[in-house]
Amino acid sequence: MTDDDITRLLSRSSPEGIEALYDRYGPLAYTVALRILSDQSAAEDVVQEAFLAVWRRGATYQAARGSLRAWLCTIVRNRAIDRLRGERGRPHVEAPTVIQEREVSPSDPWAAVEAELTGHEVRRALAGLPVEQRQTIELAYFGGYSQSEIAATMEVPLGTVKGRVRMAMEKLRVALTDPKESPWQKP
């Protein structure tokens, strides 16, 4: 079943659409929530809430605004961040974890999805970012920090934050969506 098939099912408020969506992206959604919340129970709650929101809202996904995967990741991420903010008042300030390269084992539940969608480009792209750009991205996307909060946390001017995010996104976009035009010639 393709994403288009799933989208059609979702647009008709079909339970099978949610079932198919979960079977395809449930592990990803759970990993996203767990990465942000660092709490299994909270991550389960967020994933269930996110999928139920998709089920109840029905046909709100628009392909022109990005992939089904991106749409779902955004929903899960936003809910996880909301929960993080609600529970802590502010996310706990700590040094961002640098995403490490890893080996994908044959039993890896995500291996097939990752191999299909990104392969090694993700890790190569991340490894190619300067540390300060990667940390900025991580604070924002995984930690839920706003631009001004990042500036305060990293003790840099707001303009620097904007510049880092802009440059990082430009590199990531090119590297991940069109690897042939990647600015990095070497892994």
């Binding site: 269930q48 969608l117 996307y141």
Partner: peptide, 27 residues
Amino acid sequence: ARNADAVSLLFGALDPVAPPPRLRRNL
């Protein structure tokens, strides 16, 4: 849209964690 797709792919670099079966069941 391209930015959203690129950002969503970042999760591919995380160590995947299989959700507990009860999550699918409950959902």
